[in-house]
């Protein structure tokens, strides 16, 4: 018995570009996942609060504003503070290659850039949740 995969999709900071995240939300829903959407202009604190309360499998942060190197360290620190160590954190949007490498080291499980086909997002999230196993 497995529940649908739960995902929180979040937009953080001064970034009003939500077309992409909404397309991803619909894609994941159509793949049978439960998607909680945060809405625009959230802070890392708000996003982590929501992710913990919702007990999502995956926290996905969409960024098109270039602040990834500020936002993700904060998110990981907050998750740790709240005692959550099994949440899968992924990133989506537009970001430079050197940031992608850094983010991976930091623990971001997948970074899906602008050319990622929708089905690839579904497949990668599904695989990540399978690998993590039951909780």
């Amino acid at each position: 018995m497995a529940l649908p995969i739960r995902v929180l999709l979040a937009k953080v900071g001064l970034d009003g570009h939500d077309r992409g995240v909404k397309v991803v939300a619909r894609t994941l829903r159509d793949a049978g996942m439960d998607v909680v959407y945060s809405g625009l202009h959230r802070t890392p604190e708000e996003v982590v609060n929501a992710a913990v309360q919702e007990d999502v499998d995956v926290l996905g942060v969409s960024l098109l504003s270039g602040v990834q190197m500020t936002v993700f360290p904060k998110i990981f620190a907050l998750l740790k503070e709240k005692g959550v160590d099994d949440m899968i954190v992924v990133a989506g949007g537009v970001m430079p290659d050197e940031d992608v490498a850094e983010l991976k080291k930091m623990g971001v499980a997948e970074i899906m850039l602008q050319d990622t086909p929708p089905q690839a997002i579904v497949d990668r999230l599904t695989r990540l949740v399978e690998e993590r196993g039951a909780r």
Binding site: P4, A25, R26, L28, R29, D30, A31, G32, M33, D34, V35, V36, Y37, S38, G39, A50
Partner: peptide, 12 residues
């Protein structure tokens, strides 16, 4: 009803 998935937007 088709995919069984959902978009939960009440938090917004």
């Amino acid at each position: 009803p088709y995919s069984g998935g959902s978009i939960l937007g009440d938090r917004i």
